[in-house]
Design a protein around this nucleic acid. Structure first.
Lengths: 226, 226
DNA sequence: GCGCCGAGGAGTGTATACATAAGTCGGCTA
DNA sequence: TAGCCGACTTATGTATACACTCCTCGGCGC
């Protein structure tokens, strides 16, 4: 594997998993030393991350991990809803793939899967398989690349959501509806079900964000009183 | 200006204006010599152009200017319609800018402007001002960046369209409807009018493409007979 | 004549040295 | 004491040498 890919993947993972939270400043030399490679591939990795919108240039200081405010999350989902609904519509129209029949079976089994918290990662992998299948079936390079552009930001945002099993079960049911609509070739239902799912996901995330913001301000207030 | 920016702009312009048509192969050393800079900034420019989708890597041979087939153009517009309709909707909802009143006046004068063919570039500049105003007013970084991602490809595609004054006049009328809807705050009309405009633009391009394809095959047939 | 194999070459991938710009901190001055 | 000016520091920007990979083309064997 190329050193620039290694650097890109490593830095990207750190950002996505909040090892490097928003506001973290990166410099070329520093990262080159940490990763034991030269500045050149680091530079390339920085450029790619900046193009992804994960890093923004900080004139004269380096590059900083981009912010992920409540408003940003809303904007992210507003666009995601538009894109993924349309993608679901296109996929349902084509209805050309065996893969969705397989996914249908798996999503039917998802509630059973989710009875144990240990299986969460399996469920997330299933969702990733659905995403990949949709990417493959939309048949529009531009649509796929527009959606892919959003994914890293969504991964970052997901960590802000409560992963309570109640929400996960509901999400599984929403996903099932989407896959059913695709298999049936019901384009409008696929689009609407996707929009429903995403709006509910957004709502869930925002509730988590607002809740923890309140908790944070409460604990800050408590500290001031102590 | 940085050498990498110079290289990026120069190469991009060549691609957009068909100086380097689809299929042209670029190599780092060659371009570095041509532009009298070192490989490093050329490399950065290549990376940016590849991220734009204007270049695709050709393993072991260099990078090739990406293809722009009829299907690609259709895909491009399918996504563009979704995105720009939504953008127009958002802008109409916000209705916060003086700029659209100015644009309204200018688009009302557009038919008079278009009476002379010399003024076409002024008209194109006006459309660019509208695009910029919408970019500024949508208020979503993700929406703007998704739309911007498509622009270079649209510039390339535009060259394939007939620029007959009949179509230009019709386009001016369609733009006027869009701006009126934005000024009125009629979000649904703004979205629908944008979709109408873009579908008609697509139709115009496709007719040109198909027509010249027929012409090309005819002349090829004539050459075979000669 | 067809296919495999290897040497050559063209191209990218990486390291590193040097150039340059911008931000910061200290000192000078009013 | 506050503000400005300038050198220093630290960062990025660029050039270039070298390493490595892969494509290509010629020769050899079957």
């Amino acid at each position: 594997m190329r050193a620039s890919d290694t650097a890109y993947t490593a830095l990207r993972d750190d950002i996505l998993h909040w090892v490097s939270p928003p506001g973290t400043v990166f410099a070329e030399v520093e990262q080159a030393q940490r990763l034991s490679i030269s500045r050149t591939p680091v530079r390339e990795a920085f450029a790619r991350l900046a193009a992804d919108g994960l890093l923004v240039a900080l004139p004269g200081r380096g590059l900083v991990v981009s912010d992920l405010s409540r408003d940003t999350i809303v904007e992210l989902f507003e666009l995601r809803i538009v894109l993924e609904s349309e993608a679901a519509r296109l996929v349902a129209r084509r209805r050309d793939a065996q893969i969705f029949l397989e996914l249908l079976e798996d999503f039917r089994l998802a509630p059973a899967l989710l009875e144990r918290d240990d299986n969460r990662n399996e469920y997330y992998a299933l969702v990733a398989r659905l995403d990949a299948a949709i990417d493959k079936a939309v048949g529009s390079q531009f649509m796929v690349s527009a959606i892919r552009q959003l994914r890293p930001h969504l991964v970052r945002a997901r960590r802000l959501a409560r992963g309570d099993s109640e929400r996960l079960l509901a999400a599984a049911a929403e996903h099932l509806t989407i896959v059913e609509a695709i298999v049936d070739g019901d384009a409008q239902l696929a689009a609407d079900a996707t929009a429903v799912h995403l709006r509910k996901s957004l709502k869930n995330i925002l509730e988590s964000v607002d809740h923890s913001a309140i908790a944070a301000s409460n604990s800050a207030a408590a500290m001031n009183h102590s």
